[in-house]
Amino acid sequence: MGLFILRRSGVMILTALCLTFIVFFLTNLYPNLEKLAKTQGNFRMSDEAVESWLGSHGYMQPLPVKYGQWLGVMPGWTHVGEDGVTGRCLRGTVTAEEAAQSRKLCGILQGDWGYSTVFRDEVSGIIATRLGLTGKLMFWVLVLMVPSALLVGVLAGMREGSPLDRTLSTFSIVTTATPEYVSGVIFIAVFASSTVGLKWFKGTATSAMESANFENFFLPVLTIALYGMGYIARMTRASMTEVMTAQYIRTARLKGVSFRNIVMKHALRNALIAPFTVIMLQFPWLLNGVVIVETLFNYKGFGWTLVQAAGNNDIELLLAVSVVSVIVVLATQLISDIGYVYLNPRIRIS
């Protein structure tokens, strides 16, 4: 088990390295850098001005060197200008002596995530606040999604082919067929617009960043939860129907155990092993939904940050975003594998 976790962690680090290198490569292509220079400097820069701006900000070095600096395995760049020294590890313009004294290595290995060009702030601070906000959103999504998905799945799979099963299965198919930007738009139209006039909820969740309440937070949570719910419910249903046809359920039924007890005591536990994996693997998908919903409801969390960073080619913020998301994706995969082994006695004991 220890070896397994070690190997998976190794693969995880390798994946994160490859992935950030790809992001690094794509964001450092010259047209992207040119756009960055023009948005940071001014839009009427000549080609030479763009090059000198990029040179003085350390963007003109070879790609592996820049990547090494970002990682923190190579000394950060410095640039000697007319009024002092600027550099990766320096904040603002400093004198030559100060520059000589400051540290040489500053990459993510040293805990230095860089500086965001869009928000003009430390990346680590931005990521921490935004992740906190998204964490709040995800927490309520899980609170709403997991129990209702399991309930729908178990009720549907209890008696295969019954009218209840048909209704709930159709419901879960409809939810999987409704991407967030469709259901979100429909919810806002029905519950938040002045045309229909229900006005039960608010159409934006901006105010939920400080004080979340039912009125401003329920729609975004529901929108994300619904899309993921159908899939989990269908998996639970499949697992439940399989369990309900197993030998020991038939034995229990022939013994005269009541249907209620069969479901609650015999079937439920075994039926919930498979959905656990599915729920964990659903996280990367939720991340997608988070980006859409945060844009739609103007909730300034992690997904919103991703869109801002990607739209403005904010290189270091984008890299931090991809590091965080790859860790989320791979960590959930690892947890789902380990959890599966622990939950399933047939694998655990053998």
């Binding site: 693969v11 390798l14 994946t15 490859c18 992935l19 992001v23 794509l26 964001t27 292509l29 010259y30 047209p31 992207n32 040119e34 756009k35 990367p284 991340l287 997608n288 980006v291 859409i292 997904g303 991703l306 869109v307 990607a310 739209g311 080619n313 984008l318 975003v321 991809s322 998301s325 790859v326 994706v329 791979l330």
Partner: peptide, 26 residues
């Protein structure tokens, strides 16, 4: 490994990286 690498990308980030006009120019 390659497949998992692509799957570990958030889809929307990938789209932003591939589909912006600057990247298309390259």
């Amino acid at each position: 490994f390659l497949a998992n690498l692509i799957l570990a990308f958030p889809v929307i980030l990938l789209f932003y990286l591939l589909v912006t006009p600057e990247i298309v120019n390259t």
